[in-house]
Write a protein that binds this DNA or RNA. Sequence first.
DNA 1: AGCACGATTAACT
DNA 2: GTTAATCGTGCTC
Length: 200
Amino acid sequence: MSSIRRLERAFFNRLTPDVAHDLIGMRLVRLDNGRRISGVIVEAEAYRGEEDLGCHAKAGLTQRTKIMYGEPGHAYVYFTYGMHWMLNFVTEEEGFPAAVLIRALLVEEGVDLIAQRRNHQPSNLWTNGPAKLCQALNIDGALNGYDLCQPGAVLFVESLDDGNPIQELGVTNTPRVGLNNVPEPWRSIPWRFIGMSRSL
DNA sequence: AGCACGATTAACT
DNA sequence: GTTAATCGTGCTC
């Protein structure tokens, strides 16, 4: 019988593709007015360094990218397409810009709140995209820079106490999504990780 | 100061 | 399959 614990900063202070891979099957938890909204992470992408031309850090240290240069284990939440928020976790040692984009969840807790926030769409469309899961979990720019590893955090990731994922999933990887104007090799580098149910 | 575009989504034909 | 929505960011002038 194992118990649940929150991921510590050391988990995030590692090579970014490894962190993205290992986040598959972990549970993302949002405390919204004391209520848990959560889901198992089933898709994530790695963005790593100023050399990665798919990564925002290609622009260097700016007002927007400074969070990625900071301490690992913080949230990097950015706004795009004039309407969407995206959730990332900062990775690797402080000073090196990198993050993992959370792209999809399997909803576990807070179904009623999510249905409401997602405008009562079909449940399979609730959190199957990076902007959708931010809407579902009430995540926006107010959480940019937020420390997921602080005591009493309202946003964090859970694992089993042995460090294993909450849900064991087979993990496949592919090129990242939405980088059609990004030069090779960055457009095709297989840094998108997808969890697949073993029992089909 | 102006501009092109974006780690997307929902609603179309 | 296509496209509008909508605005912050970074780049150029």
